[in-house]
Design a binder for these strands. Structure first.
Lengths: 311, 311
DNA sequence: AAGTTTACATAAGATAATCTTATGGAAGGT
DNA sequence: ACCTTCCATAAGATTATCTTATGTAAACTT
């Protein structure tokens, strides 16, 4: 007994005859006879009284009809649910991101996603790279966006989706902002009172390494703060300058609370990575997210020779 | 997509692998691969992540699994319901009977039926032969038991299941009962004060016709009553004698409230008919009823030459 | 790091299920 | 009594599905 048997049975019950049902479902009449006959043989009961002029349900037929209808409806519902999944009108998107991306980049991106696919449940978690890797591997996340070195997991595909510019900033009252807008040298920048994250923070390491490469180091780490947001406020208050991600200061730049310090020859960026399974089928929802991401930020493949986390 | 596809899909999801599922449902592994592959192709989505070491549901797979389980359960429920119908642990028995049979014979019979098949709903209606015929034809009744001439409907099978003896009765104070138990002649019987049903009643017609055949007729229809029960009470009270169905007086004979009047050469019976569809499949419930009836009252086919109702 | 094992995919041939056309037979209507 | 309608059956064709044999990729071993 499969769904097709029951479908034809139902057609007969509803059409009131084998021939009429056959016509209605575009199949020959003997096909109907055989399927119904097989059903009757398997169940061991007659399902229709053959009246000569059409056909009528027996008690067993009435009983089965109820089930056939429910089974048909449920089967159709299943197919529709899957179709909705495929058509992005249902489903679940789970994204993991590191802090900066999660706070300053993802909300906007997910806003656009929600606008395009309003029926897909969204979930996004801010976590560190290790957690994101773990949750990608165990399937809890569909994709991850991270800032640090990408994890060295051969099951995951790693793409740089954006180079995050790190820029020197100062408050509106800084002399180089308020009076002359002449650019500093890098050496001069290093001599400014610099507000930084703690050593070990991803941002801090990028800065230290970049300066070291040019034979410089920070002269006056005047203040060490635990969050980018705190650093921005401190800089805005005139406590010093800082080097922060361009992503994090859009609002303050527009409001005039912060300004970019012009520095000769200063150019520093760090790659932002997009992580997801390499050889595994991806949800339509995740696929659509990745497509949206690629559309906003055309991707760039991470060569296998780049440094990765030991993990 | 049919139930078998879903069954195999479910087996894979529950076994956690194609090979394990194949073993569990006694089918080759490629058969599983093909069925699941076909399902995926039809739905347009991957249902399992192939992990190399077994297999894991995707989001679409999880969604489908819920439906597959519900569909499987519902299908099993349908098969079980039908099996119960066949096994007489479910179903509905609808019997129509004429008054005497319905009151004096059926309760006992249906009691036995209920004892044997306690899960079958019973319905029995007392109606006249025309109604019973009509309700048999339209399928409302599964079988009918009637007293009069059987209907002349070629779609219905008519069997005599019992010859109902009509016997003369008197009250306990009747001289032939109380003092001498000498048998009356038929002529003498006809001269007794006789309590009868109205002309047109089936019983009355049988009696009149039988007496007429012997050149007799009732001399003293002293009282005409509309029900057999009323006649019995009148006879018991000594208002006269009567000729009634043997079926109706078992209790009163045992209680000594009525007695059979011995009459020389008096033998009168009428056939009781069992009606049901001739060429049509019968419910297990109805079949079991007919079997019970046949067991109690071995049947006798009504020849086509017997008189039938014009109808 | 190479070999071994495990598990899914694929191909080819065999088997079974299902369909279609053609035809028979029974019941209903004229 | 004839004609029509409708279901059942038979034969042949087609399609689904299964099995055996083999390929391939991932994971575990040493």
């Amino acid at each position: 007994m499969n769904l097709n048997h029951l479908f034809l049975f139902r057609a007969v019950a509803e059409a009131g005859g084998f021939s009429r049902a056959a016509e209605r479902v575009h199949v020959s009449q003997p096909a109907i006879s055989m399927q119904v006959g097989e059903l009757e043989a398997q169940l061991g009961l007659t399902l229709f009284h053959r009246l000569g002029r059409g056909v009528k349900l027996t008690g067993a037929g009435k009983l089965l009809l109820g089930y056939a209808q429910r089974l048909g409806a449920l089967g159709a519902e299943a197919e529709q649910a899957i179709a909705e999944l495929k058509g992005l009108r249902r489903g679940h998107l789970a994204i993991g991101a590191s802090t900066t991306i999660g706070v300053y980049l993802l909300p906007n991106l997910l806003g656009e996603y929600r606008r395009r696919y309003p029926d897909i449940d969204l979930q996004f978690d801010i976590a560190n790279t290790d957690d994101i890797e773990r949750r990608l591997v165990d399937g809890t996340l569909g994709a991850g966006l991270t800032e640090g070195l990408p994890p060295d997991c051969h099951e995951l595909e790693t793409l740089v989706f954006l180079r995050d510019e790190l820029v020197p900033i100062a408050g509106p009252d800084h002399p180089r902002i308020k009076t002359d807008r002449k650019a500093l040298t890098i050496r001069q920048l290093c001599a400014e009172p610099m507000i930084v994250r703690e050593t070990g923070s991803g941002t801090r390491e990028v800065i230290d390494r970049a300066l070291a490469k040019r034979g410089q180091k920070l002269q006056r780490p005047s203040l060490v703060l635990g969050s980018t947001e705190a650093i921005k406020r401190a800089v805005a208050a005139g406590l010093g300058v800082a080097i922060v991600s361009h992503l994090t200061i859009q609002t303050e730049l527009a409001a005039g609370q912060l300004a970019i310090l012009p520095v000769h020859g200063f150019r520093l960026n760090r790659p932002l990575h997009r992580l997801c399974w390499r050889n595994r089928a991806r949800d339509p929802a995740t696929l659509a997210f990745l497509a949206l991401l690629d559309q906003r930020y055309p991707p760039e493949l991470v060569s296998e020779h780049r440094p990765t986390r030991k993990s």
